[in-house]
Simulated scan of single mutants.
Amino acid sequence: MNRPWPTAYGRLLGARLLLRSYFFLPYIVLYARQVGVSLGTLLVIEAVFALLIVLVDLPAGLLADRIGPRQALAIGAGMEGAAALLLGCWPHALVFWLMQPLFAAATALTQGSDAGLAGALLRRAGRDAEFESGERLFQAGALGWNAVVFAAASAFSLISLRATFVASGIVLCLTVGLVLTVPDVRGAAPDGERPGLAAQLTGVVRAVRETAGLRWDLTAMVLTGTAFSILLYLMPVYVVAAGIDERLVGLVAAAVALGAALLLHLAPGGLGTGTVVLAAVAASAALASTSVTLVLAGILVVQCAQGRLLPSYRALVLRDLADRGDATAMSVVTTASSLGFAVLAPFLGILVARLQPDGLALVSALLFSCAGATLVIRSGAARSRRAPAPAGEKEGAV
């Protein structure tokens, strides 16, 4: 029988789910047009946002470990809530532009500190071995909560598109209070003290270089993260191309998210990453089809694969880099997962025009295949290594 999760961990799980209450997300393109931002300009803004995330993500993780992951999570949630309220109350193209750095900084603060705090809470309870299963629970819950958010977003949009931002801002600001009820548990500081940010960053880079398996893991994260970002960004395009009315895209997204949450929850715990990557390859190829059944099945499997691989990546990196700080370790994961899309984002419009969405689905299948090969090489190298690692190099966890 599974043991209940610690009370503080449960509160954090609830806060992490509420922090995904982006009711405006399905309507961001329509809102942008309403305030005078063209689709081309919106793609530029998306590119700037993606680049900002990559640039500030790791420094934000380092900062979170210095001030405490709970404080970082509360500050990030408050910043996101304030940005959403400003966009809802003052719909203007300039405000839309100005809020992007605020959203990027807030996202960077929250996406590393939340998982880092979760790991620290489980470690304090003597249950750090359950971190990956806890992250799987969170991913399944997040997909289910996304379905609720998409359904509620449709109701808010009937009032106005601005209402979706106002509702998001209110929920995010209220979540700050829930976050502050969670104990601020911090990981052990490197070398027993908190060095400066520059020294911490240097230490992280050194740790990555010296950990043999981690370099392969990060390569796989870049490849799969790029593929997931492309496919999920273009999901409405694939749905409409399969013959589904664009007015039903939000409803379809909610239904698929619920199905993915259920499938992720029911998937066997021993399912290997290789099997998950192969499923993602097949799902990517299915998105190039015009069959509604294949496209919906492909989207469902892609979301499940992301929900299964991300906890695995987080557990591996936390195992290898926990001594550098929990939030820092989680920021390494999000940076690696976002890096490829950040590089491609400025050229996404050109890529869509040249390759077409079907071509990008096949490119994503190729990226997943390369990631699978990387993981096989990494696993084989770890198994074949019988002698102790050379001085200065430690073997990453398998």
Results as ranks from 00 to 15, higher is better:
Leu309Phe: 06
Arg385Leu: 12
Ala115Thr: 13
Thr273Phe: 12
Ser154His: 12
Gly40Thr: 09
Glu393Tyr: 15
Ser284Lys: 04
Val205His: 12
Leu316Pro: 00
Phe165Ile: 04
Leu58Ala: 06
Arg308Cys: 07
Glu130His: 07
Ala282His: 03
Ala118Asn: 01
Leu339Gln: 03
Glu393Ala: 15
Ala120Ser: 14
Gly259Met: 05
Val276Ala: 09
Leu321Glu: 07
Val256Glu: 00
Ala188Thr: 15
Asp65Thr: 05
Ala105Met: 13
Ala329His: 03
Arg127Gln: 15
Gly380Ile: 08
Leu201Glu: 06
Leu351Tyr: 06
Ser229His: 11
Ser312Phe: 13
Ala329Lys: 02
Leu232Tyr: 10
Ala389Thr: 10
Gly88Val: 08
Val149Asn: 05
Val239Gln: 06
Ala297Glu: 09
Pro4Gly: 12
Val176Tyr: 00
Asp65Ala: 09
Thr374Pro: 03
Ala371Ile: 01
Thr181Asn: 05
Asn2Tyr: 10
Leu223Glu: 04
Ser133Ala: 15
Ser21Trp: 00
Leu262Cys: 06
Leu262Lys: 02
Ser229Thr: 14
Gly14Asp: 05
Arg354Ala: 15
Pro59Gly: 07
Ile299Ala: 05
Gly243Phe: 07
Gln71Trp: 12
Ala365Gln: 01
Leu321Val: 08
Ala212Gln: 13
Ile75Asn: 02
Ser369His: 09
Gly359Ser: 10
Ile230Tyr: 02
Ala47Asn: 04
Phe228Ile: 12
Gly274Ser: 08
Leu174Met: 11
Ser369Met: 13
Arg206Leu: 13
Pro59Gln: 07
Ala84Cys: 13
Thr293Ile: 15
Val292Pro: 05
Ala152Arg: 01
Gly349Met: 06
Gln200Glu: 14
Ile53Thr: 07
Leu355Trp: 12
Val277His: 03
Cys304Leu: 10
Ser337Arg: 11
Tyr233Trp: 12
Pro59Glu: 04
Val222Tyr: 02
Gly225Ala: 05
Pro183Glu: 06
Gly36Gln: 04
Ala282Tyr: 01
Leu360Val: 05
Leu201Met: 14
Val292Cys: 10
Ile299Pro: 00
Leu18Met: 08
Pro190Tyr: 10
Val182Trp: 00
Ala147Arg: 05
Ala153Ser: 15
Ala189Leu: 13
Gly78Ala: 02
Ser113Tyr: 01
Leu318Cys: 11
Ser157Gly: 12
Gly126Ile: 13
Gly81Arg: 00
Thr334Gln: 10
Leu362Val: 11
Leu121Met: 03
Phe347Asp: 13
Gly169Pro: 00
Ala391Phe: 04
Gln100Phe: 06
Ala373Cys: 13
Ser338Tyr: 08
Leu52Val: 03
Ala155Val: 14
Ala189Val: 08
Ser21Asn: 03
Ala152Pro: 09
Ala282Ser: 08
